[in-house]
Design a binder for these strands. Sequence first.
DNA 1: AATGATTTGCGAATCGTTCGCAAATTGGAA
DNA 2: TTCCAATTTGCGAACGATTCGCAAATCATT
Lengths: 125, 125
Amino acid sequence: MLLSFLKENTDRQFSIEEICEGVNQGGGHDISLSAVYRNIAKLVEDGHVRRFMRDGSRTAVYQYIHCRNCEKHLHMKCVKCSKILHMDDEATETMLVAAMKKNNFKIDERKTMLYGVCDSCSEDI
Amino acid sequence: MLLSFLKENTDRQFSIEEICEGVNQGGGHDISLSAVYRNIAKLVEDGHVRRFMRDGSRTAVYQYIHCRNCEKHLHMKCVKCSKILHMDDEATETMLVAAMKKNNFKIDERKTMLYGVCDSCSEDI
DNA sequence: AATGATTTGCGAATCGTTCGCAAATTGGAA
DNA sequence: TTCCAATTTGCGAACGATTCGCAAATCATT
């Protein structure tokens, strides 16, 4: 099932094609790309899944990731290993949001993705 | 000229088509879409202009904005009026970056865009 | 089993972007 | 100025991820 696949993999984003492969991995009847497109659209609409865009390829590609309580915290994406980190330090989270509000900007955690380099990748020379 | 058009308009992002129109507004010889695509690619490569993606349309659309000292500060985009805000409070800026580093994440100001609601738009009911 | 509603898969359409190539423009060197 | 090579341009075709249309398959309710 589509949603359960994403639920079990929240450490990175998946393209439609990857989701299709991942779901069909489980054996049984294969699902088509079209169906994945349609079903994922519904999941996004209902707020179960979030959609971002990947830059860099010839044309833009949408990527998807499951929402847990993700509207409650910020996310970071490592530009080297593409891993998604969920901000789990509540003190920092509230501090960041407060600092932004002081600058008259009410940050939207659901749409924002912080890009940078994660801990393990910054160790690499 | 393409770069000077973007230099004069740093309060929002422009699509290729908007850039084309904006440049051709200045009279003289019109430049084609192809040329805009090519020239903007070079500007991005050389670090004079930054490229982001706009979500929501049928297919992905790239958008461009001029870099001033933009590698030095964060940017915010209002999801309501699409205006781009440049973080000008240095104290907050360094505080944010430090807070992220405490969470083992070295934020990349050039690739990150904070989404949310700006001051004037949050006043609207 | 029968009926209607939903979902599926396939192929065509969409459309921003990129590519290929010949024509136009530019920039030196003589 | 004139010649020639190098770069840039504009046009149309190609690309490719996504969406659309529609008939066939599946599901749900009785």
